[in-house]
Computed example of a mutant assay.
Amino acid sequence: MKYKKRIILFSLLFVIFIIFIVPGALADSSCLDCHEKLSAFNETEKLFNEIRVKHLARDVSCSLDCHAATLDKFAKSNYEQWTRSKHAQFNVSCESCHGGNPGSDIKDEAHTGVRRSSDPDSTVFYRNVPETCGECHVDELNQFRDSKHYQRLKALKQAPTCDTCHAPHEFKVLNMSEIHGMCSNCHNPDMRIAPLDVPDMAIASLEDAERLNDEIKKAMDAIKFAKQQGEDVSEAQKDLENAESIRDQLPVLWHSFDLAQFESVIDSGIEAARRAQMDSDTPAATPSTPGAGAMLSLAGIIAIYLLLRRGKG
Rank of each mutant, 00 (worst) to 15 (best):
V233N: 00
Q228Y: 04
C183T: 08
R127D: 08
D108H: 03
D239G: 15
G181M: 13
S177Y: 05
K224N: 08
E178Q: 15
P195G: 12
S122M: 10
A159M: 14
S117R: 05
A159V: 06
H169C: 08
N175W: 07
E131K: 09
L174V: 01
H166I: 06
M201N: 09
H111V: 06
I193A: 03
M176L: 12
D119V: 09
E131L: 15
A219Q: 09
G99V: 08
K154P: 05
G99E: 11
D197E: 14
G100T: 07
D146C: 14
K217M: 08
A110L: 06
D139R: 09
I106W: 02
M182G: 01
G181I: 15
P102A: 13
Y150W: 15
C97Y: 09
M191K: 01
M201C: 06
F144T: 06
N188A: 08
K172W: 00
N142E: 00
K224F: 00
E178K: 04
K238M: 04
A226Q: 11
E178D: 03
K218S: 06
A204W: 10
E210T: 11
D190A: 06
H98M: 07
K154W: 02
S118Y: 15
H187T: 15
A159Y: 04
E178M: 10
P199K: 12
A155K: 15
D208L: 14
Y150R: 12
S147E: 02
G100Y: 00
C165I: 02
S118A: 13
T112V: 13
E109F: 12
A222T: 07
R192H: 02
T161Q: 08
N101R: 15
D105E: 13
I179T: 03
V124Y: 01
A222F: 02
G134S: 08
A194D: 09
V129T: 07
D190M: 12
C97S: 11
E170L: 06
P195S: 11
V233D: 04
P102T: 15
C136F: 00
S205F: 03
L156F: 05
V138G: 01
A219K: 09
P195V: 04
I216Y: 07
M220I: 13
S177D: 05
S177K: 14
T164M: 10
S205G: 13
E231F: 11
K157P: 01
S147D: 10
S177Q: 08
